[in-house]
């Protein structure tokens, strides 16, 4: 008897669940496809907005208070940029001390943080001064397919 009752109870429970699922299915089936698509698009849209806002918020955090990264340059452009920066630092040194530095190392730390390295030769750039003039050059211009590659008194020669 008891077993029969139990079987009956579980069968009716199953039926209730089945009916619920069916009615849910019916509910979703009853929604037109177009509405489903629109709802899907709206949900995706809001998720995208939330993600964009999150990314944008993250980009604006104080951890991101840093200058943009400077793009890496080809060796030749890098060498030209290095020579230009060194020349500018030497000129600034002269303007402040009314004499040229005897060695490039004297530019560190007041004018530049550290001396750049010739990207092809992997050595320091060459520097010479004769009191009222100076020249800064790559280690070996031939490595850059040049005969001359230097800054003299603020002017670049590259040929």
């Amino acid at each position: 008897m008891n077993e029969d009752n139990l079987n009956n109870d579980s069968t009716s429970e199953l039926e209730v669940i089945d009916k619920k699922e069916q009615s849910q299915k019916n509910f979703f089936q009853r929604i037109p496809l177009a509405v489903k698509i629109i709802a899907g698009v709206i949900i995706v849209f809001f998720i995208a907005i939330a993600v964009l806002l999150f990314i944008s918020y993250q980009q604006g955090s104080t951890d991101n208070y840093v200058p943009p990264e400077v793009e890496e340059m080809a060796d030749q452009d890098q060498a030209e940029d290095d020579l230009n920066q060194l020349s500018s630092a030497v000129e600034a040194y002269y303007a402040q001390n009314l004499t040229y530095p005897s060695r490039l190392e004297e530019l560190v730390p007041d004018f530049i943080d550290k001396l750049p390295i010739d990207p092809k030769a992997k050595k320091s750039y060459l520097y010479e001064t004769e009191g009222d003039s100076y020249i800064i050059s790559v280690v070996d211009p031939k490595l850059y397919n040049c005969e001359y590659f230097y800054y003299e008194n603020g002017f670049l020669t590259k040929e």
């Binding site: 918020y57 980009q59 604006g60 991101n64 200058p67």
Partner: peptide
């Protein structure tokens, strides 16, 4: 200006 963060927004 190459990068500006204003009130937490880039």
């Amino acid at each position: 200006s190459t990068k500006v963060i204003l009130n937490h927004f880039l």
